[in-house]
Design a protein around this nucleic acid. Structure first.
Lengths: 330, 330
DNA sequence: TCCCCTTGCGCGTTCCTACGC
DNA sequence: CGCGTAGGAACGCGCAAGGGG
């Protein structure tokens, strides 16, 4: 390439990277030749020399079970491409040993930093292997408190959903959630209870065992109808549980939203847009978390991030669809 | 590392790679020291020297909308890790210009080969940039016929689903599908019609506009009940359309499976396991396609794959759940 | 003579220093 | 003396050929 342009290798490097002292004419010339030759710098050699691979490891415990991690990855990738970075994604399928090996592989690839993402908001033990490497947790908080993290604001989720139901006129509101404690469950429930209390209301919290799927939703809804038939609105832990509520309501001849308003959490579109009527739900900021993880990580890597907060708590948005309306006249 | 072990750099290289003439004692010694030091070879330097990055580009048009591509990636990653390869995943969000740039970035990273995956089985125009680089298409066939591909056997999907309904005793079977032609739609419909014909049966094919979501399923089911009320079983284009059928059936007071048997395609678990009763469906071989793509690609790269077929058509499996039973007695 | 190990070069960059007008 | 260009070392590894006991 240098030979073809009739200049030295150094000049080519300077010209293409807009660095050093090169005349405008030479710069132009070199760039034209590069275009003609279809020359693209070998990033591997560049990484070797500059000690900066511009590679970021993305460690997930699960990328296939739901599309959520996909959206985190999409956000991370968009930010990465703007910063000239490349993502190397690995999925440990919740196998800690495998995860450790994957991280070692990533470090051998000389990644500049690592995004450590979990599928469900949790307290996580960051593998010691990551040690002093720049790291950013997503949807998880470091139990040791050493690494910075980015998480959704679970309390705010419970708040905006509950506020929406109250504004619609509801006074008899229940929260259908999980027995199993967790950052998501605890936060959403706290947001629900706090908002109810502040409005001078009380409402039952129905907790069911298992994971938050449609089966759990059916179980919770069945219990609700038996014990609290006067309820006019429910806030579900997630969209899948809302799906279970729809099934029980329809079987019981309860019309949604005329006789029962329903709010979910996740905005898991095959469900939220597939249910009839379409589901009002709180969307989790997966894309934004992915983006922020990369921008913060890049700042960490280049050493400008000393002032960055240890934990970013991202606000979530209510997606208004058709499953909430005013309560039936008594 | 070499200094620490008291030998030359070359000996370390030979010892760790089990190559060259090194005594067993030295080999052991070197490996122990490597373990103690937590030494891991710099893959970047290795790649630069060997002209083999052991990196594979994974180009997808969509990784977040559904978990399907996630399972392809998981399969690809598992195979890659067994072969000592690493995946670099990019998502073009169906933007051809962006995709072209992403492929150039991957090539600048010196990837050894590229998996070009599409979300919905289609005839694809492979970007010219990929040119002579080893490439493997997944869920897509190269229009130009230049690159090898891996796809699900759509006809077989239609066949096994239809056979299952016929074996359960059904004679009045309908196929609910899309207006929009496509490899998936055409193949599944062909499999349905061929199987029906071979069994001496005929059944209506209801085609609806739009994409295959729950709305389309409701529309198709509504039309079916109006025009063919005698039908006892339906094969849906996918699980989301089956969800629409459930909604219409429940509203019409039709019990599934006692009065109407339903089969879907995809095994999209939030739906197939969330519906009540759980849905019998045909699972697409996403994981297997991802695995095969990497093993075939590696063979291509190392030049052993001249005999490999241009197109691999993978069989799919029926997942029996609770939405199919014998037809009601007349 | 043979085994075991070492020296030396090159992969494609980047960066520091040097040089000439 | 400024600016524009060139030379050369180094990044960490792999391979060919060479050398010591």
């Amino acid at each position: 390439m240098a030979r073809q342009a009739g200049v030295s290798v150094t000049t080519v490097s300077h010209a293409l990277n807009d660095r050093g002292q090169v005349s405008a004419a030479t710069r132009e010339h070199v760039k034209r030749i590069a275009g003609e030759l279809g020359y693209a710098p070998n990033r591997i050699a560049s990484a070797l020399r500059s000690q900066r691979s511009r590679l970021i490891g993305f460690v997930s415990d699960e990328i296939a079970a739901t599309p959520f991690s996909g959206r985190v990855i999409t956000g991370a990738q968009d930010a990465a491409s703007e910063l000239g970075l490349m993502l190397m994604v690995v999925d440990s399928a919740r196998d800690d040993g495998l995860e450790e090996r994957q991280i070692e592989t990533l470090l051998a690839q000389q990644v500049d930093g690592v995004v450590y993402a979990r599928m469900f908001h949790q307290l996580a033990d960051v593998p010691a292997t990551l040690g002093a490497h720049p790291t950013m947790l997503v949807d998880a908080v470091d139990r040791a408190g050493a690494q910075p993290s980015i998480v959704p604001d679970e309390v705010q989720i419970g708040r905006i959903a509950t506020e929406h139901l109250i504004e619609a006129g509801h006074r008899q509101i229940a929260h259908l959630t999980l027995e199993q404690p967790g950052m998501a469950r605890d936060g959403r429930e706290a947001g629900f209870l706090a908002t109810m209390r502040e409005c001078g209301l009380t409402g039952p919290v129905i907790r069911v065992p298992g994971i938050g799927d449609a089966v759990a939703g059916r179980r919770a809804a069945t219990e609700l109808l038996r014990r609290h038939p006067q309820i006019t609105a429910v806030l579900c832990f997630n969209d899948q549980m809302a799906m279970g509520v729809y099934q029980v309501a329809q079987a019981a001849g309860l019309r949604i939203p005329q006789q029962l308003s329903v709010v979910g959490v996740d905005d898991f579109w095959p469900i939220s847009e597939g249910l009839d009527p379409v589901l009002t739900t709180v969307a989790l900021p997966h894309y934004a978390m992915g983006r922020l993880a990369i921008t913060r990580l890049e700042a960490l890597i280049t050493g400008q991030a000393d002032a960055a907060p240890r934990e970013a708590r991202l606000a979530c948005e209510l997606v208004r669809r058709a499953s909430v309306t005013a309560p039936p006249a008594p």
